[in-house]
């Protein structure tokens, strides 16, 4: 490598013609970069035309390897590929060592490489997108209407199913028939006909006193609700207690009228395990039946007819489906429009 210290030796060798083409090129490169070392009489002619017969490829023989990243490229020289690959930082460690060795003492290559390095762009951080917040989205909670509708529909279907198949039997619990060994003892207790004070009236229970043809009604206060108190208050042998949340007076009377011919013991068989209170579910069930079918305790036939009528009015086509079960025999009748089907 030519330096300021050994330039004189090189110039001497040049005059004596001892320099090989590679050393001559290196000398000329040095003198171009440091023209002060070139003698005034221009000992070394730097014109290209006066260069000795010099094969540039002889220099490139030192760079016998090709960068792996650009091996597939079929254009450019190996040196150019090395420059680009180095500028791209895709040289392997071995390739980088070879490349650095190639640059040592080769100022032309070094200069060329310096220019290639400048071809890389640097991101200008001063360029920023105006109003980035405009691009952002605000998270909003969307009411899941579809899911809500599905679950509501499912709940309604389940509720109706539960009501249709299990609800009818629970109505019997509203009727409490108490058997008593004392037979139709008229009440002499003045509390039995105690007037109901306005503030006291809870209207929870009406007590129907079943006494053959005579039916007396009385509204009990809340303190009189319990069965035990009823027994103490009324000495009547047979009582039928209706929850007024479920049955009104007329219905209770109808029920009693329909069954008054039955002996007390038979009445007791209707609902031997009945209680005098309703669970919340039973209460809702009975209310729904009343609203939907018009009765608190409709028969299955009535329910079928009611549902069929509603379907008919909704669809606009005559529709009827009735299913009966009498003494173990099942039968059903189906009609839609003009077509009907019956099976016994």
């Amino acid at each position: 490598m030519i330096t300021k210290e050994n330039i004189d030796a090189y110039l001497l060798d040049f005059l004596e013609g001892n320099l090989n083409p590679s050393e001559l090129l290196e000398l000329k490169t040095f003198l171009r970069e440091n023209p002060s070392f070139n003698p005034d009489f221009e000992l070394v002619n730097l014109d290209k035309d006066n260069l000795p017969n010099f094969n540039k490829a002889s220099l490139k023989k030192n760079l016998v390897f090709e960068p792996t990243a650009f091996q597939e490229i079929q254009e450019g020289t190996i040196e150019e590929k090395m420059f680009v690959a180095s500028a791209e930082n895709v040289l392997s460690e071995t390739e980088l060592i070879h490349f650095k060795n190639h640059l040592i003492g080769n100022s032309l290559a070094q200069k060329e490489f310096d220019i290639f390095k400048k071809t890389r762009f640097e991101a200008d951080d001063s360029i920023i997108f105006p109003n980035v917040s405009q691009l952002k989205r605000i998270e909003t909670k969307v009411f899941p209407f579809k899911m809500f509708a599905k679950w509501s529909a499912a709940a309604i279907v389940v509720g109706i199913g539960f009501w249709l198949f299990f609800g009818s039997s629970s109505m019997n619990k509203n009727v409490v028939i108490k058997k008593s060994t004392n037979f139709r003892k008229e009440s002499t207790n003045p509390q039995a006909v105690k007037p109901i004070l306005p503030n006291e009236n809870i209207n929870l229970i009406r007590n129907y006193k079943f006494n053959q043809q005579q039916l007396t009604t009385r509204t009990l206060s809340k303190s009189e609700v319990s069965l035990r108190e009823c027994k103490e208050t009324f000495s009547a042998p047979n009582e039928i207690v209706f929850d007024t949340n479920v049955l009104d007076t007329n219905e209770a009377k109808t029920y009693i009228d329909q069954n008054e011919t039955l002996p007390i013991n038979e009445l007791a068989k209707i609902s031997p395990n009945a209680s005098n209170t309703l669970t919340p579910l039973e209460f809702v069930n009975s209310k729904l039946k009343k609203r939907f079918f018009g009765k608190y305790n409709p028969s299955k036939e009535e329910m079928y007819v009611s549902i069929s009528n509603k379907i008919s009015s909704a669809v606009g086509i005559p529709f009827l489906f009735i299913r009966k079960q009498e003494k173990g025999n099942r039968s059903f009748y189906f009609r839609i429009g003009k077509f009907s089907f019956e099976k016994n």
Binding site: A69, F70, E72, I73, E75, G76, E80, K81, F83, V84, A87, E88, I115, F116, K118, T119
Partner: peptide
């Protein structure tokens, strides 16, 4: 990937020539 390399190689050479004039 090869096409990308070729384009980058050409671009670097082009830019080198371009700024080489300035040098």
């Amino acid at each position: 990937e090869q096409q990308v390399k070729v384009y980058i190689f050409r671009a670097r050479k082009f830019l080198r020539t371009y700024i080489g004039q300035l040098e």
